[in-house]
Amino acid sequence: MSAVEADPGRTGSRTQPTGLLAGPGNVTGGKSTAWWGMVLLIFTEATFFAILLTTYWYIRFSHGPVWPPDGIEKPSLFLISIMTPILLLSSAPMHWAETGIKKGRTGRLKVGLFVTFAMGATFLIMQGFEYHDLVKEFTPRTDVYGTLFFTITGFHGLHVLIGLLMNMWIQYYAWRGRFTAERYTHVEVVAMYWHFVDAVWVFILASLYLAPHF
């Protein structure tokens, strides 16, 4: 009943609707659907962090003047002042990798991803050292301060870990040559996630580490 006959065989040349670009994968005109999906995932994730930090402030303000309570030391700023720049600066090689592959430079992609991975992993290892020291003084079970401190930093650490796993995963495909100047959606999306994990840290740093000193 169809009014029009299409060309026989499926491998024939693509006739594209006027004004549309043919695209391998989803990257053609505009942002890909995957990009939009990641934006929304980040909205949700940001809400998670917002809720945790609001909870922190809510409890801090209803708790009375001494914070941290129960004789717990104020958080030390020593390690954190090394970790923070490492994490925040790790966004730079990630960005460099992303812009690289958009120009088809696979070498830049591989190097950038690797450097980002190394910096992120350093952050996580240092957080491990920090925890190792802190648990001698207090744990999540000690009181609500310990609960909040370890939950929030731990939740962030988990996100760094996920970011690192995704990084490793696209490194693998970068080495197998699956990304090109036209096909980079995976890289774009993972990079966005990584920038988010970095940016969130600033709020955690300010609330959990800096604010108790003022």
Binding site: H63, P69, D70, P140, T142, V144, Y145, G146, T151
Partner: peptide, 15 residues
């Protein structure tokens, strides 16, 4: 054994 809602250890039930 965390203490979010444990009032005895500074948590908050209304939370």
């Amino acid at each position: 054994g965390f203490n979010f809602f444990n009032v005895a250890k500074g948590g908050d039930a209304i939370l």
